[in-house]
Design a protein around this nucleic acid. Structure first.
Length: 535
DNA sequence: TCAGTGTCTCTAAATCGTTC
DNA sequence: GAACGATTTAGAGACACTGA
């Protein structure tokens, strides 16, 4: 009985496997046939297009149309530039040929062909080569430049963006000398996918950026005329770096500075070496000195001799490099201070946006503490036992829906007051980060009516992470204080029970509290005088 | 003959639409 | 909202065509 059951089970399993195989095979056939069908449909479309082609104009007209856009078989530079412009505007590669044909038709030129997607792709690639050529040429010509980068993550992938800032060459003067632009220009040099956010990886990615530029530029006829570019030359012109205030950005700056310094020492060392090559006595003395150090580092002549040949060769190489660098240090030290500074100067600047954020936050903290210091009546508290949960949701969203403890209430009473906190609560009502919450649309419509404007800006997103939003909100509330007071009243009377929610009650109270409004005015003045002009 | 271009094809990723 | 398949979009290799 059991044996029979086993046999039937085996048969059933075999049948199931066969059925799965047949299903997989059928699915593959279906996919293949669908792909063939699409290919045939595309072929039919091309056939129709070919028939249209034959109908378009006389041979003379076709020739004229062709010579307008092509030089021989090649599309003219103007067309290629237009393709890149269309790409940068977001036009699909597949559609660009049709767009060009339609535009040409609008100007009375009947084209009997369209640019293929493949050609559009190639023209886009040309753009990359041209960009690298241009950057290479500008780096070759400029006297000094700085670089900056930042990175971000998307779907757990790290991306690093790169920019350089330099006075670009704009032409030649009467003596064939390069003329540079008055003010520096920022050049985008690419976004790269990186394995992580570490300083080592960021540094290596920058070197790759320069390497790509050098490789392309150095292969060009332009490089043959103007001279090739190398990392030593690039770092020699590099004067500094900027980034945000993250520690790794500062470490990256230090790392680039070290690269610049090492390459400088090598260059100076090699120059010094050339100078002393004629003086055999000095050269021999130097070699002996470094050779003795090399053997001492290995632990004596016996241990040196016992080292494998490859290890000795590597150490020889390192010793030579160290000797050249040593000569470089001497050469640098022998220079006058001005010359030395010019070669080694390095400037690091952090992001002024972060600085402004820190100033705003610090200034606000000092201001809110000052009421007590001068013994004046400060702003009204915006949190109490009844509304603590609602206020905490805005001011401390990370705590979610966790129960509000007595300790939470006390903490909120201590921190939830003043202009900045009022703006955070106002943002939750007038422009909530979630579309479904708050009074975002009503706010917009009411302001359009009250200010008699066709289109008003949404309330600054203090409810979201947006730079300068609290300053902007202070300006907005102080400028249109009466309108906002009126709007709060409208919010209340539009409801069936004509009452405020807890947050609305606090915002309304804040808009009528003089100390709170005083803070608001101070923050608005700071935003107008400091943040807006300098950001 | 050669360089520029077009066509076909395969592949991968993103996006869209449907179903549960 | 997740899962899945279909569709769209793009990159790229191979090869054919064609005008200079």
């Amino acid at each position: 009985m059991i044996a029979e059951a086993h046999t039937r089970l085996e048969m059933a399993q075999k049948q199931a496997v066969d059925a799965a195989d047949r299903t997989a095979s059928t699915s593959a056939d279906v996919r293949y046939l669908k792909a063939r069908l699409r290919a045939l449909e595309a072929r039919a479309q091309r056939y129709e297009a070919l028939k249209d082609k034959l109908r378009v104009g006389s041979a003379e007209e076709k020739k004229r149309a062709r010579t307008q856009l092509k030089k021989g078989r090649t599309f003219k530079q103007e067309i290629r530039a237009m393709v890149r412009m269309l790409l940068s505007c977001g036009c699909k590669q597949d559609r660009i040929g049709q767009v060009v044909r339609e535009v040409a038709a609008a100007f009375g030129i009947q084209l009997d062909w369209v640019l293929s997607r493949r050609t559009v792709g190639r023209i886009a690639l040309e753009g990359l080569v041209m960009a690298r050529m241009q950057i290479g040429f500008e780096l070759k010509q400029t006297q000094a430049f700085t670089m900056s980068s930042d990175s971000t993550g998307r779907r757990h992938q790290n991306y690093q963006s790169h920019h350089i800032h330099l006075k670009v060459p704009v032409g030649y003067d009467a003596n064939s000398q390069v003329v540079f632009a008055e003010s520096p220009t920022t050049r985008f040099v690419g976004v790269h996918l990186t394995t992580d956010h570490s300083t080592t990886t960021s540094h290596a990615t920058w070197i790759r950026v320069y390497d790509d530029v050098m490789t392309t530029f150095n292969k060009s006829p332009l490089a043959k005329r103007t001279g090739t570019l190398d990392l030593r030359g690039i770092c020699g012109r590099l004067r500094g770096m900027w980034g945000d205030h993250a520690n790794n950005e500062k470490a990256l700056s230090d790392s680039m500075r070290q690269t610049k310094y090492d390459l400088l020492l090598t260059e100076l060392g090699e120059e010094r070496m050339k100078m002393i090559e004629d003086d055999m006595g000095e050269l021999e003395g130097r070699m002996q000195e470094w050779s003795a150090k090399k053997i001492a580092d290995a632990g004596g002549i016996e241990k040196w001799n016992a080292l494998p040949a490859a290890e000795r060769a590597a150490r020889d190489l390192a010793t030579t490099a160290a000797m050249v660098q040593g000569l470089g240090v001497e050469e640098l030290a022998s220079m006058d201070e001005g010359e030395r500074n010019l070669l080694t100067v390095w400037v690091w600047t952090g992001c002024c946006m972060h600085k402004d954020q820190n100033s705003f936050k610090g200034g606000n903290a000092a201001m809110t503490a000052h009421w007590k210091a001068i013994g004046a009546v400060g702003p009204i508290p915006l949190a109490n036992k009844d509304n603590a949960a609602a206020v905490r949701k805005v001011l401390q969203p990370e705590k979610g829906d966790a129960p509000v403890t007595d300790e939470d209430i006390k903490k909120l009473e201590d921190i939830a007051f003043g202009g900045a906190k009022l703006m955070a609560l106002a943002g939750a009502i007038f422009h909530n980060a979630l579309d479904k919450r708050g009074q975002g649309d009503a706010h917009e419509l009411f302001l359009e009516f009250a200010l008699n404007e066709e289109c008003v800006r949404r309330f600054p997103q203090t409810n979201n992470t947006r730079f300068g939003s609290h300053g902007e909100a202070a300006v907005e509330l102080i400028t249109h204080l009466d309108v906002y007071r009126c709007f709060m009243e409208v919010i209340r009377i539009r409801k069936v029970n004509q009452t405020y929610t807890n947050i609305e009650k606090n915002v309304n109270a804040g808009l009528h509290d003089n100390p709170t409004l005083t803070e608001l005015a101070v923050l608005a003045i700071y935003h107008i005088l400091i943040t807006a002009p300098y950001m």
